[in-house]
Simulated assay, not measured.
Amino acid sequence: MLAGGVVVLLASISFAVSVGAVHIPSSTVWGVIVNQIAPDTVPVTWSAGREAIVWDIRLPRALLACLVGAGLSLVGAALQSVTRNPLADPHLLGISSGGAFGAILALLHVGLVVGLLTVPLFAFVGALGATLLVLGVSRMAGASSASRLVLAGVAISFVVMACANILVFLGDPRAHHTVVFWMLGGLGLAQWSHLVYPLVVLLGCGAYFWLRSGDLNAMMIGDETASTLGIPVVRFRLTVFVVGALLTGVMVAFSGMIGFVGLMVPHIVRFLVGGDYMRVIPASALLGAIFLVWADVTARVIMAPEDMPIGIVTGLVGGLFFIWLLARRQEG
């Protein structure tokens, strides 16, 4: 199944790079990619403009969709384990709200002081700050249980979003459309030089989740069972929260706020491969990447040549999915 998923992912990337306002055949897409990796390997039968569209615009965007989809899905799967909450997702802890605060501050009040990395950098710092606030509030209140940590995250999320709305209210109204587009999610800022940051963080955090898959299985059963197996429950839960915050903060910094991916994908994965996190972790990353690539394709072509925010597509699909899931459980 994983091998088949990799094939589907490669085909999805090829299709995503092909479609758009300017249609480019898949043979040209792969020719450009091969020629960029190994120059003069294949004869050049395409124009410089099409090569720029494939290599400089569409391929980095498709790869960023893969990284963001995989990262958000991994965090959702891990949080659903340590909180034993089927509705847990990367936005649960106020991380996305912190990222939104940082991005709005950069877009409306600071400007591009460090170039194109300004918005991702400010968004990441905001997400990290919100995470530290959640951990600080939970420690101050002695909230070490899963439910208390979730409540602390929800409270911080409301506070941070209120502060972000104040920044929007005080900012230049002519720039509000840029803020709205970022808050609804978008991959239009993808560049080759930026992809290394989410890639490195995804590999590191994903490896940690996969190596601790046995502990995540135990946490699904309950704190008592995990404790009897020798797992330091409180410390492990906090570690998963921090690792998830790091991964989510980096993804949100480069893509904006994209909802429902981390909430929906782990449920579908469990239908396909079961509940063992040794399988759930890699399958979630793979399916999340495929899903977000197709969501981005839909966002680009449904109102072409306009670029619809990808968060609208994921929100619509995610909402319909959970309506179906509720109906299915009711029938059961």
Rank of each mutant, 00 (worst) to 15 (best):
I33R: 07
M264C: 04
S97Q: 03
F291Y: 12
L121W: 05
N35E: 05
A190I: 03
R279M: 03
V137H: 06
A327Q: 08
R58A: 07
L92V: 11
V196W: 12
E224L: 11
W30C: 00
Y197H: 01
L108Y: 02
R61D: 01
G256Q: 11
R328H: 09
R237Q: 01
A78S: 15
G206E: 04
V6S: 12
V250I: 13
M220W: 01
F241I: 14
S145Q: 07
V201M: 08
S81T: 02
S227I: 00
G111N: 08
P60E: 15
G129A: 13
L108Q: 04
L151K: 09
L105S: 12
N165G: 13
P305E: 14
L135R: 07
M183N: 08
I37P: 00
V168E: 09
G204Q: 03
F169P: 00
G249M: 06
T41M: 14
N85I: 03
L199S: 15
V159C: 09
L325M: 15
R329V: 01
V34F: 08
R300G: 02
V261C: 03
A48R: 14
G142I: 01
G71E: 08
D89G: 12
L128R: 00
G129W: 06
G126T: 03
A327P: 00
L92C: 10
L272G: 04
V180K: 14
L135A: 11
G153I: 07
P232D: 10
P120E: 04
L87R: 04
V180A: 13
A283C: 11
D89V: 02
G259D: 01
A226C: 12
H194V: 04
G20Y: 01
G136T: 06
E306D: 15
V154F: 07
A253T: 13
P232S: 13
P305Y: 12
A162N: 13
L216R: 09
M257T: 15
S14E: 05
W55C: 08
I268Q: 10
L2K: 14
M264G: 11
L167Y: 14
A70E: 08
T314H: 02
A143W: 00
L64G: 08
S47K: 05
V273R: 09
V159S: 15
G244T: 04
V42L: 15
L246T: 02
A304R: 08
L199V: 09
I281K: 03
V75D: 06
F122V: 03
G102H: 10
G153P: 01
L128G: 14
V125H: 11
L128V: 13
T314K: 11
L107T: 10
H177A: 15
